[in-house]
Computed example of a mutant assay.
Amino acid sequence: MAWYFPVLCISFVLISVALASDPSPLQDFCVSIPNSPVIVNGFACKDPKLVQANDFFFSGLHLAGNISNAVGSRATPVSVAQIPGLNTLGISLARLDYASWGLNPPHTHPRATEILTVLEGTLLVGFVTSNPENRLLTKVLQKGDVFVFPAGLIHFQHNVGYKNAVAIAALSSQNPGVITIGNAVFGSKPAIGSDILAKAFQVDGNIINQIQSRF
């Protein structure tokens, strides 16, 4: 029976890996029900007999986003909130507009890998690897270029041209989520204590107070 324990351990590891992946849909589609009182990991499904073509449709990506803001960029998402038919399909996208020298600030998508395609303009893009290396990988992209941001890693895009830029991002989740680092750290409600942030960033507390006041 000496062979039994190693085989049991290997079987357990294989089963654990299988259970850790996202399950495949168990039906053709599961169109979400807006404002459903049923709470599940995702959204409750509409009766398939009531599903219409518009449940799988969105119009608006031809329209430029309003980039007259402090960072000079705007994302127009197309997730399950815009297309109910995306529910359980594990995919979404967004149009990204950038003013000249506009920035999509450092952020993460906790539930998705992102693949970015530049439609117009020139973008400096990059992401930072996890601890302890924290390597910054950057690339300047031109029209038609593609770049991938691995799930959960902090990344950004910066328009380094003198004209507006446009990109399309595809994401491996119906609801990828977004955590903008500056907003989360300096604009949380209630605020993170300035003494905590001062120690974390190794700066004077007055500097933290000034930054927090901007968020």
Rank of each mutant, 00 (worst) to 15 (best):
I83D: 01
S24Q: 10
T108A: 13
A198I: 08
S173R: 04
V125Q: 04
Y162V: 13
A170G: 11
D55F: 09
H107S: 11
I211M: 07
Q210T: 13
S11W: 01
I67Q: 07
F147S: 05
N175Q: 12
A167Y: 00
A2T: 13
Y162S: 15
L26E: 00
G161C: 05
L137D: 11
C30P: 04
I15D: 09
E120C: 08
F127A: 02
A112S: 12
Q202F: 03
T117L: 15
S100Q: 13
G182A: 10
D204N: 14
Q212H: 08
L96H: 08
Q210C: 09
I211P: 06
P6D: 02
G85E: 12
N87F: 05
N183W: 04
G85T: 05
S188W: 08
Q174I: 04
R214D: 13
R214G: 11
Q82K: 11
V31I: 00
I115T: 10
G161W: 02
F12Y: 12
T180Y: 10
V13G: 03
P23I: 03
S188A: 14
G193A: 13
L116N: 13
S59K: 15
T138S: 09
T138E: 01
G193D: 15
S79M: 13
F149M: 04
A184E: 05
P23N: 07
H109L: 03
N35R: 09
Q210I: 14
S173F: 02
G152D: 05
P37G: 00
S16M: 12
T122L: 13
A112C: 00
V125A: 01
N66A: 06
V125E: 08
P48S: 06
A184N: 09
E120M: 11
G126M: 01
D145P: 09
G177T: 01
G121V: 04
Q212E: 05
P6C: 02
P105Y: 05
S36W: 05
D55Q: 10
K49C: 06
H62P: 09
Y162Q: 15
K139A: 11
L141I: 03
L116M: 15
F56K: 06
F12C: 13
N69Y: 07
N131R: 11
S73A: 11
T88A: 08
F149A: 00
L26I: 04
G126S: 04
P6K: 10
S73T: 08
D195I: 06
N159Q: 08
G65V: 06
